[in-house]
Amino acid sequence: MSAPSERRHWFYSVWSGLLLGLMAFFILNIGLMVAAVVTNSFGRRWLGTWLPEGYTTQWYAAAWKEFQLGDVLWVTAEVVLVVVALSIIIGVPAAYALARRQFRGKQLVMLLFILPLIIPPITYGIPMATVMYQAHLGGTLSGVILSNLVPALPFVILVMTPFIEQIDPTLESAARVFGANTLRIFWHVLIPLLMPGILAASLLVLVRTIAMFELTFLTAGPDSQTLVVALYYAVFAAGVRAPQSVDAMAMVYMAATLVWLLIALRFVNPTQLVSRVKEQPAH
């Protein structure tokens, strides 16, 4: 609400109009970009006209066969599921320790959890891939999972910590008075209360892992490519394939990501995808 006494100069109206126009222009172009991919993936022949000559779904069948999308999707599902499960199983207890306990070296541990989130994957990915290949993990599914866990685990920890801080500690004390140990408190008190947070963190990690290109690219072998890496190779070798079938594959990737994003957005604020924001938790 603006204060009633606020005098609105014409300059401010023009300025705010300009900024909102810029934003609208940006979003419009992104929208058209996506629409172009959609149209091309269904287009029969599209050369220099506004719309293709006819529509077909044949490119999806072609892409499915050419790029072995069945296998790629299966690998992607395996990687994503294991990464989500492991990052929650390892991350939630760590987040609990950060939220509730004081211990020696806590600052250092916090730093350790923040670094993988602010250092870009390609910077640490190259030495990491080197170590993976020396440990004979490079090019395997386990290697891809472990490398994706490096940013996923700290992400879960940083998303979960404020959720845990919000839970009334007297609940745990009460359970402890009745003789419950940490494990039982976790299982019977914390996990049920934390379910919304765990769900949100899982969805966010899921979306981020599907879209994680660099680390998977650096550690994947031919049999352990996820969808986004397979898409990269398809775009990279664009001259070899029909552009429509590459766009069809892009659509499959887009659908796989956006479905989960839309589900995630029901539970979290959009800004939580890029940062850990201390706001009201999801309801």
Binding site: M33, V37, A211, L231, A250, Y253, M254, T257, L258, L261
Partner: peptide
């Protein structure tokens, strides 16, 4: 969310 690879193709 879509990432740079999809943006490139778009």
């Amino acid at each position: 969310t879509l990432g740079t690879v999809l943006i490139a193709e778009g």
